[in-house]
Amino acid sequence: MNIVFVLVPLGLVLIAAAVWALFWAVNNGQFDEVDSGADAPFRDDADPAAAEDGSSKPRDSR
């Protein structure tokens, strides 16, 4: 059972990582606008021709 003394702090490190990931996502605007994600399937995909010639720009990160 002494393994608990190692695993629990390890778990805390994972939690810290999860909190860090959440903060990163919030700071990058992932939660600023959650309404239009549901519309995504109805949007046109980026122009395939543009994708081929490599000039396409990064679209929104949602």
Binding site: D32, E33, D39, A46, D60
Partner: peptide
Amino acid sequence: AALPGVDNVTVNV
């Protein structure tokens, strides 16, 4: 997004 130098664009319907 097709413009040069645009990093990210989001539109809220």
